[in-house]
């Protein structure tokens, strides 16, 4: 009897596991937005297009309002021109997040509802990943965006 219970438990467990693994979708997939699933796959395509720069120029600085949420960034991608001074005004709309753009030395905590100002000069071209640097829940591994400097 014990053996039968074990078999049933293992079969149910594996079925649930396979079901969860195959059925689980990222929030972006669910709301129909285009988003990358694993960082590297997404970037090649983006760099081929010339995108309209995000935000607006105020006093010679490109100012871009951004939102961080479980589990993504908006807008995504962010587009800027090489050489521009960029000011990101980032607000988390739900829980504590982080924003990390390694190539520009950015790593800030984002408390919910509070606008965090980040300034940098986009001095290199390319597509760079925006990571969430604070573990923010089960979808943390899917939370990233990109910034395109062209």
């Amino acid at each position: 009897m014990k053996s039968i219970i074990r078999v049933v438990v293992v079969v149910v467990f594996l079925t649930v596991l396979i079901f969860i693994t195959r059925a689980q979708k990222t929030p972006a997939e669910m709301d129909g937005e285009h988003r990358h699933q694993m960082h590297g796959q997404h970037h090649g395509k983006q760099t081929e297009e010339v995108l309209t720069p995000s935000g607006e120029i105020i006093d010679g600085v490109r100012v871009i309002k951004m939102e961080a949420f479980q589990y993504g960034f908006k807008p995504d991608p962010v587009a800027v021109k090489k050489g521009e001074k960029v000011r990101l005004l980032v607000t988390s709309t739900d829980v504590v997040h982080g924003i990390m753009i390694r190539e520009f030395g950015i790593n800030e905590k984002l408390p919910p509802g509070k606008e965090v100002v980040i300034e940098f000069t986009a001095d290199k071209t390319g597509t760079f990943t925006i990571h969430c640097s604070v573990f923010c829940g089960s979808g943390h591994g899917n939370m990233y965006g990109s910034i395109i400097v062209q």
């Binding site: 689980q24 694993m38 573990f135 979808g139 591994g141």
Partner: peptide
């Protein structure tokens, strides 16, 4: 500065 994203922890 390697980001630690725990990519296989989502399930």
């Amino acid at each position: 500065s390697a980001p630690l994203v725990w990519w296989s922890s989502g399930n």
